[in-house]
Design a protein around this nucleic acid. Structure first.
Lengths: 206, 206
DNA sequence: TGTACATCAGTGAACGCGCGTTCACTGATGTAC
DNA sequence: TGTACATCAGTGAACGCGCGTTCACTGATGTAC
């Protein structure tokens, strides 16, 4: 072979890595094969030595993006006390830094709507990663049995993703900061509540 | 003129109306000028008698979509008691019906991410409608001074939009129903809470 | 009221362009002897 | 160890296609007389 054994894999990974950033920045249809290859320092012709189609790259790239994002949050949350992990995650997710850097952030507010409209294959791949992410957040919900924790994890993720979406629609204006703050406080407060289970002090709900 | 006085306006409105549905279904870039005109029973050539550009139609269509959605929710919420309006809105928004009919639903989960990436002009038009929507929901938040009500309105909208986004990623699977239920319960519970103000019984929070 | 003309919403062919994809080719390296 | 050959990642021109947009034209209707 022309290049050393691992060379192709490295190139492949580099394309995926760069694409995962640009696709989150520009949208699932916002950037073409030629430009994506240029990002990786290549010409467009070589693309099909690595991927069956553009769609195949999109699937790989957003999967990679979700994995990196999850890894990142894990890193942030694993260094605080267990009962603070969820709030740590909310703080990290709903930051101005995340809002202003979609290319390195969560794929859900950036690509979710577009990918939900893609082929069943693409959508299902996304749905699988979504479930992984829910599971990850579930691990961070303190003091609740699994089922209730998962429910809370879903609600927290929905609030975070929705807040990020609204904040980006608002740009980086006053409204955007207001949205970010309102969403963060709400998610944190919800995280403090204990929906219908365990835990001693002052329960009583409804 | 060739047609009666209101004819052009009627045609214009019909294009906008049909486009607002198809764009929510297929995405801001998911359908072309020719197909949009065909939807309205016309050929593509006449498009520029009505709009300066495709983007101009997108702006009008999503503005129309937001207006109709707000009108719709108002209709639903205005016929229940004031203190139940917010929960009524949450129920309507987070229904399987809404999830499965993006073409007649809220533009935020359907088009938000794409429009946030468009030209500043388009994004700002969207941001304006977003603010209108927040104001509308604020009117439905019971028992709170304006500022706190607005904060809660934003959080509720974020949770609703995020939940809808996740539910659509999940398709119409078991996971999707689970997401819808978790988001709905969370939004309803948050609506029941009274964040740091007024209202008599059992306050006490941090 | 009737007739000639002007208007302009709508038609459909054509445009330029960028896209995803294909393909013949290249040339550095791995492999066979 | 050295040499001839095979491989195949990457190149760049070319393809077909669909898109947004333009334009010369049409013909039903409003308007002027």
């Amino acid at each position: 072979m022309r290049y050393s054994r691992e060379h192709k894999q490295e190139t492949h990974d580099r394309i995926v890595r760069k694409a995962s950033v640009r696709l989150r920045e520009k949208g699932a249809h916002g950037i073409g094969v030629a430009d994506l290859m240029k990002e990786a320092g290549l010409t467009h012709g070589g693309f099909y030595a690595h991927f069956d189609s553009r769609e195949a790259l999109v699937i790989e790239a957003f999967g990679y993006a979700m994995d990196r994002a999850m890894e990142n949050w894990r890193k942030q949350s694993d260094q605080v006390a267990p009962e603070k992990q969820l709030t740590q995650m909310v703080e990290t997710y709903l930051s101005a830094l995340h809002r202003d850097n979609p290319g390195h952030g969560c794929s859900i507010p950036a690509l979710g709507a577009e990918i939900a409209r893609e082929s069943p294959k693409t959508r299902k791949a996304f749905a699988g990663k979504l479930d992984e992410m829910i599971e990850m957040i579930t691990d961070y919900v303190p003091n609740l049995p699994r089922k209730a924790a998962r429910k809370q994890a879903i609600a927290t993720l929905a609030t975070m993703a929705g807040t990020m979406l609204l904040a980006r629609i608002a740009g980086s204006s006053e409204l955007s900061d207001e949205v970010l703050k309102a969403g963060k406080d709400s998610a944190l407060e919800a995280a403090k509540r204990e929906p219908k289970a365990t835990v001693p002090k002052k329960a009583k709900q409804n």
